[in-house]
Each structure stands twice: as structure tokens, then as C-alpha cells.
């Protein structure tokens, strides 16, 4: 295994990482990527370690990705979700922490609908914590796997222009990605309807555009976000978006619009996609789409994070 320079107790967010930490995680992920191509996709790195995947919010993809990563590293992986555990959002943080602690896990992978819950738990608990998404705040492993995917295609992140399009206000993917890409020397433009843009969007550290065309112009990387009709914050989806059809006409990524980006631009999407809403099938399945690579790379990145946090070198 490659030696990582990043050594920390938790992965709470991209905010807590330096550029060389990010590089070291991505470098480590390169060597784990190779594991997936073996006939027997299992290494003993986390043998005897217990990893709890505690999901206070439903998730299939992220949770499965973590679970596969953990199993490929021979960890004992156990899933908790709100439907199968008594831990609820009304339980005190201290009780939640003590309950989890009592099971003596080595690593806790936590997703919660509220911002900074993993950070709060980290102050109360001995185990390592990996933030698998806290509200609309951070989703560090997603940003790392996106960066990993981009780097594999572009060689570097430095100097790239990355366009992120969709519901910026309610997206943790955006916040982590902007932080990471800026730290690595890329420039980022976020675009979306004004109803989906935080009112002080400039605080995110990215350029802000309200026409998708402005964001796509000259982009090296185009990241389309899922329009989540079920999670539209305060006001109900109908207040943010009159219809998915209108969204598609204003912001959807079609082949014509993609032509505004650089010729070698790649297209990312954190999944699951709404075809015909934020992206056409032509683009999603086209030559420049790296969407399925992101899924595969997610495993390698999550293995790298777990290894660096809990692995025995």
C-alpha cells in the first residue's frame, strides 16, 4: 500500500483538510483502485476492525459504497439506519454518542440530516468518524471521489475550470466540492436558478452564474447535481421550481449546451440521475460522461480514507 501523509483521527469535512492531505488521500486511492480489478477483491487491511455505518437519513448509494469498501478491506461492517435502530434525531447527542461508543467501533460512518452532527459527535467519542453527509453542509468523500475522477482524466486539478449546476443552496456536494477544488487550485463556477442559490452565494468561494450557458463556457469539468424534488428545504419544491420540464429547458445539460464547454470537458453527476431533468440521456451515456467511473472510484477513495484512519500499516 502507498504511504499516505494524511494522518488524522476523523474525516469530518474538506474544511479540515490541507491541499497535501487531499493529495495524499487521492494518491492512496490510486493503489486501492487496483484491488477492484483482481479476481478476489479483498485485502486484509481492516481485519478485526469494526465499522458502523450509522445513517440517520436514507441513502442507498453512499451507504452501499461504504459497506462494499469496508468488506473489501475485511472489516466487520454493520449498518444502522433510522428504520432499524432506536437512535432518532430526538435523542440527545450525548446519548447517541454513548450508545455508539458502547459498541466499541473503530470507525463510525455517519450521515445525518443536520449540519455538523458528525463534528459534534467527534468531540464526544473515541472512535474515528467519517462524515458521510451532514445536512447541506459537507460530503467529503463525494468531493474526494469527484476529485479523484477528475484527476485521472485531467492529470491535475490545478488550473481547471469546473462548473457545478443545480440546486446549490441545498447541496452538500457543492460545499465540499468548492472547498476542495479551490484548495487544489481549480476555479469553480456554480450555476442554478436564483430560487436554488443561497442568498449569499459568494460566501461559498465560487463564481456565481444564473445562466447555465455562462457556467459551461470554457469549462474543463461539468458537474450536474440531482434535482431533489423531495428535499427542497423551507418552501416546498413548487416554490423553488415550477416544473422539472422548465428546469430542463433552463438548466438541463444537453449535447448542444455541453458544446459550450471545452472539447475535452468531462461530465460528472453524483447520482442518482433524473434523465431528462438535469441531464439528457445522450450526455449521460455519451463519451464524455464519467458518471459510472465516479461510482467505481468512490470505492477506492472510501477504502483509502478508511485505511488512512484505521488501517494497520
Amino acid at each position: 500500500m502507498a504511504e499516505g501523509h494524511w494522518s488524522a483521527k476523523h474525516l469530518l469535512g474538506i474544511a479540515e483538510l490541507e491541499a497535501n492531505d487531499i493529495t495524499s488521500i487521492l494518491d492512496t486511492a490510486e493503489s486501492f483502485r487496483e484491488v477492484a480489478s483482481r479476481p478476489i477483491k479483498k485485502v486484509p487491511t481492516l481485519r478485526g476492525k469494526t465499522v458502523l455505518n450509522v445513517f440517520f437519513e436514507s441513502s442507498t448509494r453512499t451507504r452501499s459504497s461504504f459497506e462494499i469498501a469496508e468488506k473489501r478491506m475485511s472489516a466487520d461492517a454493520i449498518n444502522f439506519s433510522t428504520s432499524t435502530s432506536s437512535l432518532s434525531k430526538g435523542e440527545s447527542m450525548l446519548d447517541t454518542a454513548r450508545n455508539l461508543e458502547a459498541m466499541a467501533p473503530d470507525v463510525l460512518v455517519i450521515r445525518h440530516p443536520h449540519p455538523r452532527v458528525p463534528h459534534q459527535l467527534a468531540g464526544l467519542i473515541d472512535s474515528s468518524i467519517v462524515n458521510a453527509g451532514d445536512g447541506a453542509h459537507e460530503h467529503p468523500t463525494q468531493a474526494l471521489l469527484d476529485a479523484f475522477t477528475i484527476r485521472r482524466h485531467k492529470g491535475t486539478l490545478e488550473g481547471l475550470r469546473v462548473a457545478i449546476v443545480g440546486d446549490i443552496e441545498h447541496s452538500r456536494v457543492v460545499r465540499s466540492n468548492v472547498l476542495l477544488l479551490r484548495k487544489m487550485g481549480a476555479s469553480v463556477v456554480v450555476a442554478g436558478p436564483r430560487t436554488m442559490m443561497p442568498r449569499h452565494a459568494e460566501a461559498l468561494g465560487a463564481e456565481v452564474a444564473y445562466r447555465v450557458e455562462d457556467a459551461l463556457e470554457g469549462a474543463d469539468v461539468v458537474m450536474m447535481l440531482r434535482i431533489q424534488l423531495e428535499r427542497q428545504g423551507n418552501s416546498g419544491s413548487q416554490l423553488l421550481l415550477p416544473s422539472t420540464d422548465e428546469y430542463f429547458h433552463l438548466f438541463g445539460l444537453s449535447a448542444e449546451r455541453l458544446a459550450l464547454a471545452k472539447d475535452d470537458a468531462i461530465v460528472l453527476h453524483p447520482g442518482p440521475m433524473n434523465r431528462g431533468v438535469e441531464i439528457t440521456s445522450e450526455v449521460a451515456d455519451g463519451a464524455r460522461s464519467v458518471i459510472l467511473e465516479q461510482v467505481a472510484n468512490g470505492l477506492a477513495v472510501r477504502m483509502a480514507v478508511l485505511y488512512l484512519l484505521a488501517g494497520v500499516a
Partner: peptide, 11 residues
């Protein structure tokens, strides 16, 4: 609602 709620993703 301001700079810090934007950065934190807090409603």
C-alpha cells in the same frame, strides 16, 4: 440567512 448560513448549509 447570511454568509455563514450559506457556508454551513443551515436552513
Amino acid at each position: 440567512e447570511g454568509e455563514f448560513s450559506a457556508r454551513l448549509g443551515v436552513p
